[in-house]
Design a protein around this nucleic acid. Structure first.
Lengths: 212, 212
DNA sequence: CATTGTGAAGCCCTTCACAGCT
DNA sequence: AGCTGTGAAGGGCTTCACAATG
């Protein structure tokens, strides 16, 4: 395996994930090569940005008919995907939790949702899209036996803080938090706070701005 | 009304929205003043960052017992909120659409979801959390009569592109796109592409990184 | 001559360091 | 002594400009 550059900027990682999905869809349509400006156009960014990203990961087009779609997909996979699939738990099996679970368990990703937690007795013990639901109260307990790597917090904002310590104790390495309550974790646990209200308020601000 | 600084950086706008929600919860608890380092701690950022943000919007603490919570809430409101509430439509009333709608129509925000679109005949004509569902096929048609400002795309990724032109024609000013298909709009329409897979893949990458 | 790869410049955001205020 | 407000430095990401390549 060729040496993979190890200090890829966050923004580039984000775009690599996006490129890959676009490329996969190109691949399915039988497209074998893309120019940087074509890939860029599909993402609403500049061609230089695409080339810079590929430069950063050390991918080059040997042919001059653009980048080889299949090769690039695999190359990005080598960078983004962990060798073994990562196990994800969804905390909160309301509409959001179900939306995420359903959305995920189609795609053949190196990420899979393997457990869910909820405190609704009607949901505990059931399966949603193939994912079993456990009692939220048992989170700390159950989690020891599962090899969980990431969790997605999809409970109402008021309940988010209750899971902070259990998550730390369980040795979880990454948290995707959809509540409006920002959660801080010790160094070594990656967090992505991702609140929809903030997004919409940001959008609203720039919309307002553009009307002036 | 005092002159509001008009070139607030995107990141600051984001944080202002977050500060406000935290401040509202402080306010409800009867807290009247906060120091920059306290507010910062609640968001896992530095006190300088908070002070810099407040400096950019021109907010100063007259008292030296920290920032006045109530005043700051109102001050941020003057910057973020449009004078009239913005109307939002949700396209796609599956689990995700419902999660968003439910989440929103509690809070007394200057943003409100006023319409939803779906192509499931069982859903059309019904109301979810007080929001009426219209036929997706009639989107372009119906949208003329509603005063819509923003849309949230919560349909399966394959269907996202179908709404691009209707959205442009309807004069929508901002789009929050939850599908994995990035959508480009002409200048003047703000877009936020916001795909969960990308977030998780990013998280996974940095988790993997931290294990080395 | 269209496309790639890249040093250098530019820009934006964060952090440092410190002066000023109470 | 502790907190705020801010010029200046620093760091990271994007864009410019252009040489290299087929």
């Amino acid at each position: 395996m060729a040496a993979i550059p190890s200090n890829i900027p966050e923004k580039t990682v984000e775009r690599l994930s996006e490129y890959r999905r676009t490329l996969l869809s190109c691949y399915e349509q039988g497209i074998t090569h893309v120019f940087s400006h074509v890939l860029a156009g599909m993402h609403g960014i500049t061609a230089v940005q695409v080339r810079r990203d590929l430069m950063l990961i050390g991918f080059t087009s040997d042919a001059k008919k653009g980048y080889d779609v299949k090769e690039l997909i695999d190359f990005i996979g080598n960078i983004l995907d962990s060798p073994e699939p990562l196990n994800i738990a969804v905390i909160g099996m309301g509409h959001l939790g179900q939306a995420i679970t359903k959305y995920f368990n189609d795609k053949g990703l190196k990420l899979r949702i393997t457990a869910a937690f909820d405190n609704d007795p009607q949901k505990i013990g059931r399966e949603y899209f193939g994912v079993p639901v456990y009692a939220a109260d048992d989170f700390e307990h159950e989690v020891d036996e599962m090899e969980l790597n990431l969790v997605i917090i999809a409970v109402p904002s008021e309940a988010a803080a209750d899971y902070r310590l259990p998550i730390i104790n369980a040795g979880i390495k990454g948290v995707l938090n959809f509540t409006s309550k920002p959660l801080n974790f010790p160094l070594g646990i990656a967090v992505e706070n991702y609140d929809i209200t903030t997004l919409l308020e940001k959008l609203a601000y720039f919309v307002k701005d553009s009307e002036v």
